[in-house]
């Protein structure tokens, strides 16, 4: 256990220090937004958004190499794609109820496929699995800055509009009768979800990010009586899973993303069974 502390502060292992910092910062947004995603039951929308992010990363890499747009960082591509996907997915879920499943599924697959095609047509070698499943070796100081800024934005907007989001998630129809623009706040919530997804792409990757968004808040829902409590428990659980997962992946030379997800999934399943058993007695 002690060896991990030495490893974190070893100048040769800067990536490990970055991974722990990034995990801690992103856990704040994950706890807050993950709670909204879980209670609003929009995990599948978040899944579609996260896969569309890959299209944005592919486009950024393609334009960097083929069009010489060196400033077009893959993280910037990811943020843009996430926002566009959030608005599209949100409007579809509001206005195309009858075809919602099909359209969301199509966006999910097309977003992912277009990213792969764009990377195929980009000269050079790109490690696809690092985007799909996370790779802490790729975390840079610039990534940390992005995460800190996005984190501050997500946190600020969530605190400012907490009562609006609470109300939209609990009873959207009643909220609109109180004169609140529910469509705006629903789309804003999806945009914050999209930005939060981008925060964790480096550590757990696009495919696994949804699990980390929903599992801590799903566990928190067993014990929380109020929404803010659920958020607080989710933040703590997300931090715990990220740190423990990073420690295990470092100690046993495993991929960080899958380790974090398997760990949190296993804890969730055990606690779910205990929760059900306690409820039935």
């Amino acid at each position: 256990m002690i060896d991990i502390f030495y490893a974190i502060f070893d100048p040769d292992n800067l990536f490990l220090k970055y991974a722990f910092i990034m995990g801690s910062l992103a856990s704040i947004s994950f706890g807050i937004i993950g709670t909204f995603v879980t209670i609003k039951k929009i995990g599948y929308l978040a899944g579609a958004i996260s896969h569309c992010v890959f299209g944005g990363i592919g486009l950024a890499l393609f334009l960097q190499v083929n069009a010489g747009l060196t400033w077009f960082d893959p993280m910037l591509g990811a943020v843009l794609a996430a926002i566009i996907a959030a608005v599209t997915v949100g409007l579809v879920s509001l206005h195309a109820k009858e075809r919602e499943d099909t359209i969301i599924g199509t966006l999910w697959a097309v977003g992912m496929a277009s990213g792969i095609l764009l990377i195929d047509k980009t000269p050079g070698y790109f490690n696809l699995s690092s985007y799909l499943f996370g790779d802490i070796l790729l975390i840079s100081g610039k990534d940390l800055l992005y995460v800190a800024c996005l984190d501050a934005l997500v946190l600020g907007v969530s605190i400012l509009f907490f009562n609006r989001f609470f109300s939209v998630c609990f009873d959207s129809e009643f909220t609109s009768l109180r004169g609140i623009n529910t469509t705006f706040f629903y789309l804003l919530l999806l945009i914050l979800t999209a930005l939060t997804i981008v925060l964790m792409v480096r550590i757990v990757g696009i495919v696994l990010v949804i699990a980390l968004l929903t599992i801590p808040s799903a566990i928190a829902s067993f014990y929380a009586k109020r929404l803010w409590q659920m958020m607080l428990y989710s933040i703590l659980l997300c931090t715990l899973f990220t740190w423990t997962g990073l420690y295990l992946s470092y100690s046993w030379s495993l991929s960080s993303g899958p380790t974090i997800i398997v760990l949190s999934g296993a804890v969730y399943l055990v606690l779910l069974v205990i929760h059900k058993l306690l409820k039935s007695y």
Partner: peptide
């Protein structure tokens, strides 16, 4: 509305639910 339309897993107290009735366009808190 009918309560059956509401999510029964939502973590909220009676106070939290009734406060929704005081929402207006202008008050954030």
């Amino acid at each position: 509305p009918q309560y059956a339309h509401l999510d029964m897993d939502f973590p909220a107290t009676v106070m939290d639910v009734v406060l929704m009735g005081r929402l207006t366009k202008s008050n954030l808190w």
